[in-house]
């Protein structure tokens, strides 16, 4: 649909959030606790951290939690009874105050989970999710959304995008039908406006490379020694993948007690040695460098080939979380000039 432009002032925004929570919707927004900003359930606008550039973890757990029960089972004398999770009963969730990069992250996740094969649980969560993002006024040394087709005021993946134009007012872009449903139910809170140029209100972020160039370069450097060089200091943890808004790999874990059991889906990471370990003991990605290479190829070569999109939104969370300062933008820049 065509974007609808509106204005909303901050007290009206507070009312909007109150109306969400009062109508039974669960609102998740960045909340600062003990110095760390993370997405958490909020009741009022006062709970929300509007300042932090990026929460430590992404908003992906709203549709792809770190652990979720997908079914339970019970062994009987001659059968197994399987009970799937009732995914028709998920609550309506509002992601509020996330950044445009977080919103963009839902698109590659959707391609992974609801592409050729549809994951009903994921799909049900995503259908119940409305994304109200806020444009970025600031960027830090880790941000690189403008190098991966994103931007501090990008609407991709958002249902509504808010851009702070004055101390008291946001410029509102209603992007999707879900966004329009919110507008229609709350017309008293929004004011009419013509489209505005958002540029003066957005962070300035220089483009360092293009994802198309990375994609092209990857065609000839699978055996390059660059992977060894870049991955030398990688400690082999999964922090990068787990904080990434676009990483969708998971592990299935059954926990059985007596005749009953539960099947869980949990986050997994291609950075782990065990991720590709075969039963025979052979590991096709024996070295950390091969696992690092996989991370880059998956996002910039395999996903473009298979799903016609890139698996990185340039939020920089992996670089911020890395215990040994593996900076993905810096590494991609190195690849771009090979």
């Amino acid at each position: 649909m065509e974007i609808i432009n509106k204005l909303i002032d901050k007290s009206a925004l507070a009312t909007l959030i109150e109306r969400f929570t009062k109508s039974g919707k669960e609102v998740f927004a960045p909340v600062k606790s003990k110095g760390i900003s993370e997405f958490a359930r909020v009741e009022t606008i006062q709970d929300i951290d509007f300042e932090t550039i990026a929460t430590k973890q992404s908003a992906k757990s709203l549709v792809f939690p770190k652990v979720e029960k997908i079914l339970s089972y019970e062994k009987t004398f001659d059968d197994v009874i399987v009970n799937n999770v009732d995914y028709t009963q998920f609550p309506e969730v509002i992601a509020f105050g996330n950044r445009p990069c977080d919103a963009a992250g839902f698109i590659p996740l959707d391609a992974i989970f609801a592409g050729e094969l549809v994951d009903e649980i994921f799909k049900a969560r995503l259908e119940k999710l409305t994304v109200i993002s806020i444009s970025c006024k600031k960027a830090d040394d880790y941000c690189f959304c403008t190098s991966v087709n994103g931007g501090p005021g990008n609407t991709t993946g958002s249902d509504i995008l808010l851009t702070e134009t004055t101390a008291d007012e946001y410029f509102v872009e209603i992007v999707t039908e879900k966004g329009k449903a919110i507008l229609d139910a709350n017309t008293d809170l929004f004011k009419d406006t013509a489209a505005i140029d958002k540029t003066p209100f957005l962070a300035k972020l220089e483009q360092q490379f293009t994802q198309e160039v990375i994609n092209e370069k990857l065609n000839g450097i699978f055996e390059s020694d660059i992977w060894d060089k870049q991955a030398m200091r990688c400690v082999g943890c999964g922090a990068c993948a787990f904080v990434c808004p676009a990483c969708g790999c998971f592990d299935i874990q059954d926990e059985t007690k007596g005749k009953n059991g539960v099947r869980h889906r949990c986050w997994d990471s291609c950075g782990f040695k065990i991720f590709t370990l075969h039963t025979s003991g052979h590991n096709p990605r024996e070295k950390q460098a091969q696992r690092w290479r996989q991370r880059i190829y998956h996002k910039f070569s395999y996903q473009p080939e298979q799903q016609k999109l890139f698996g990185c939104v340039g939020c920089g969370r992996c670089s911020r979380a890395c215990p040994s300062d593996m900076n993905i933008a810096e590494h991609l820049k190195e690849i771009a000039v090979l």
Binding site: E38, G238, A241, C266, W267, F272, P323
Partner: peptide, 24 residues
Amino acid sequence: SPCIKCYACRASCPMCYCGKCNVE
């Protein structure tokens, strides 16, 4: 409770050098 099992604690620890961790 906020642990996400990224195992950064294990991966960053000089004393966690087991080739195969018990959790695996």
